[in-house]
Nucleic acid binder design. Structure first.
Lengths: 173, 173
DNA sequence: GCAATCCTATGCATGATGCATAGTTAGGCC
DNA sequence: GGCCTAACTATGCATCATGCATAGGATTGC
């Protein structure tokens, strides 16, 4: 019984920690680049997968198509994104790419995210950090459903830090 | 160097895990009770601290006063919240309380949150769970700034599962 | 009893987003 | 070749959440 209560307590703290971490990341995005969560996700995805289409982007960032169009419009106005020519000659689609300015924002967002997480993990010693990593790695797949949202989870990931073969989330396609 | 890369990788996964967990919680709130994140936070805070004022609530859920007024209006319309009489005879303030229906929603939201977290933690054995708990407990304070947002972090916490003396976040005043 | 302070409430504006719809291109089938 | 369906993009319209500015009522201290 005490055991159960203790378990509840730890689960509760895990939830609080996650929420705090996400809050801090979003706040850091805002102060660093002035972009909201969806815009940040879009920039990071376009930066990580240059040339993708709006439709593909839409799935990564979990928005409606129309919302994604508006969002991209906005990013283009801000000079962060370019709508290139059709993908593989398909003139329906537009290949999305970052401008130099967009690339800068891309990097600053990832750095801000890294900073927030490093600051938290900084409270642990190297041994504990490694231990936490192993646990999180084991726990993450249980959180992710099959289907579209596999990618959604990675919408603000630093893909340079992500070893695909070892990512707990199977990136398919 | 490999060590650094590995550290980056683990930090990245921690970020992804937190985002996934928060996503799932918000989704669960939506499907369970149809409320958005702010409304859920409001219900949970009113349920956990019955009789609080709009101004106090506002700080817990990190909204403007006006936004909080509108939110409470909405919750009252839905029959979840009551605006009671002034707090301690102060007729400026209105003591906020949950109706029976609101209390039901309160419980269902907390249960939904617990379910999401349990599902994730279910991937670990008891020993690992305990270990994760200790690490998270150590790491959480490093994430929380002094000031208002100490409470904000707890906006959807299950206070029944939270042992105040052992909460890494000092709840003051 | 008056001024400063605090709490609540409301008018107005904005930004993000979804739904419904339309235009354009590609590809397969006759 | 011509046509139908599917896929991708874009836009009009509506809604919701939220912030800013302002106003009104209550409390407190001098």
């Amino acid at each position: 019984m005490t055991r159960d209560l203790e378990k509840l307590r730890l689960e509760n703290i895990l939830g609080a920690m996650s929420l705090a971490l996400v809050d801090k990341m979003e706040k850091a995005f805002g102060t660093e680049t002035g972009l909201g969560p969806s815009a940040v996700a879009a920039v990071i995805q376009i930066g990580s997968n240059p040339g993708l289409s709006i439709e593909t982007l839409r799935r990564f960032i979990a928005l409606t198509h129309s919302a994604t169009v508006r969002l991209v419009d906005h990013l283009v106005e801000q000079g962060l994104v370019l709508r290139g020519e059709g993908i593989e000659g398909d003139r329906r689609s537009k290949a999305l790419r970052l401008t130099d300015k967009g690339d800068d924002v891309f990097g600053r967002n990832l750095a801000a995210r890294r900073g927030v997480i490093e600051r938290a993990v900084g409270a642990l010693d190297p041994e504990e950090t490694r231990s936490l990593g192993q646990l999180v790695e084991k726990l993450l797949p249980a959180l992710v459903d099959m289907g579209d949202d596999q990618n959604v989870v990675c919408r603000v990931c630093d893909e340079a830090a992500c070893v695909r073969e070892r990512c707990p989330i199977s990136h398919m396609s």
